[in-house]
Amino acid sequence: MEFWTEIGLPAFALPGLLNYWVAIILMMIGFYTVMAHENLIKKVIGLNIFQAAVFVLYISMAKVDGGTAPILGDDIEVYSNPLPHVLILTAIVVGIATTALGLALIVRIRDAYGTIEEEEIRAAEQEAGT
């Protein structure tokens, strides 16, 4: 924090919000990848990044200032909220399932079209159509 004040930037609560910024940036990257890349695998990767952003978001919310990991122990008074962690475990499972299914589909798309580039698939369709 002193670093920022030294170089003359306002001391916005960076450590508190940093995670959220990371989440937002990841989300943007993920989104951009889905949007901009023709390659289907890259799209799935983008989707993964996008979901990872959500994981970060949830975990960040759970953080309690000065708290430790949510483990029961005699000397632990303050601990982070365990619920979001649990939720995110579920969400990760869902994410993996999605990725797996997406990749499986890509394998079959490649079998069917011989390519995994969206533009080429589209071209192949149009050729078949005419």
């Binding site: 989707l47 979901q51 959500v54 978001l57 979001p84 869902v94 999605t98 798309i109 069917a112 369709e125």
Partner: peptide, 27 residues
């Protein structure tokens, strides 16, 4: 039809985005 695959894939992308939006909001 092989287009079923691309349709499913497209739905997968869009559906996942939708669902993820939903959990962002829930979060």
């Amino acid at each position: 039809d092989r287009r079923a695959l691309t349709a499913a894939f497209q739905y997968l992308i869009m559906g996942t985005i939708g669902a993820t939006f939903y959990i962002i909001a829930v979060g």
